[in-house]
Nucleic acid binder design. Structure first.
Lengths: 192, 192
DNA sequence: AGAACTTGCAACATGAATGATGCAAGTCTT
DNA sequence: AAGACTTGCATCATTCATGTTGCAAGTTCT
């Protein structure tokens, strides 16, 4: 049989393309609730037969990789759309945070996976995002927004963690309120 | 066969007791690297036969539950030993952070699991820790250390996240330096 | 020393998840 | 409308983790 990967094969027909998207979305939903969920559960959540999942993704690993790559691209696109090397760092910080939060709320599991992926494509895309983030923080430091002497690697991890926490809130605040919370906390902590 | 749980049965002989500890430590190490690791891998890391693991912990779940309960108790003990309702909040914050970091560095996987456990014993112990933490933050707010208006639930989650990030650093700084970093960031963020 | 206990080993049973295939019915595309 | 493609279904093979058991050899306790 001609096993065709979801990525790489020749163009899929419209219905098949939709199926792939549906499966990826279902995978995100199911796996974020239970990382050990089976193909069966994913298929059920997607409303397709398990065999269909296997037809689109040769192995479980292939599905996870596709999911990861998909999220990494979404992430990178979100950052690319909002980052800027010329606008004031504080403005950019707000914009990026809001946009990233939107993506991360829907693709948290996959994005987290992307951060630890070994797939060269994902590594490249993710490294690019990290570089943009570091550049922003460096500029923020030069502008005087960020205290001199702050370790920028620590700042980035801290920022990621805040974004993660913000997406975990059951509180259904809008994205702007959340990003304000994140940026304020990032900059000023909780002291008086 | 008389299957005896690691917790609950009659007292174990000294060698068996040691084996249980060895297995729990190995489980923490292995599972923190790969949460889907098998009993086989855990047994190997502990330097015992897989059957021995099954003798001490009837099922995989039983092992995970024991590990979680063990970590929860360690966590609670660390907080109990350092928390205080009378010492200045800032001092307590430093003390607690340093002590918790020590525990969390060695038991990160299990402690994280404790935070989501449904086991009533663990829930009770963990709720107690959360209560102590909230009390500390409330007091910090009343003292003027923490800005009025800060959501204390958010503060706590934020604080947990910082501790988590601090334990992830490969940088082998001592616990005091790490806890200073955590507390400083918690209070003042990264702004100038 | 002797009883009770623990461990490793080998072997086995079971169940669950993965992955493959052929076929009939339905859907796109042109 | 015709050909190509996709899907669900039923079915099967395989692999792997889990959990058991009996037994011999070693350890702990009193």
């Amino acid at each position: 049989m001609t096993k065709q990967q979801a990525s790489g094969g020749r163009p899929l027909r419209a219905d098949a393309e939709r199926t792939v998207r549906t499966i990826l979305e279902a995978a995100e939903r199911v796996l974020s609730a239970d990382p050990a969920a089976t193909m069966e559960q994913i298929a059920e959540a997607a409303g397709v037969a398990r065999t269909t999942v296997h037809r689109r993704f040769a192995t479980r690993e292939a599905l996870l990789d596709a999911l990861t790559a998909w999220a990494a691209r979404q992430f990178a696109a979100a950052v690319d759309a909002t980052a800027s090397d010329t606008a004031p760092p504080l403005v950019v910080l707000h914009r990026v945070t809001a946009r990233v939060l939107e993506v991360k709320i829907g693709w948290g599991y996959a994005m987290n996976r992307a951060a630890f992926s070994a797939d060269p494509e994902v590594v490249r895309v993710h490294a690019d995002v990290v570089a943009k983030c570091d550049r922003l923080f460096r500029r923020a430091q030069e502008t005087g927004l960020v205290r001199p002497g702050v370790d920028l690697e620590w700042a980035r991890r801290f920022y990621y963690a805040l974004i993660h926490e913000a997406t975990q809130r059951d509180d259904r605040a809008d994205v702007d309120a959340l990003s304000t919370l994140v940026v304020d906390t990032l900059l000023h902590g909780i002291a008086a």
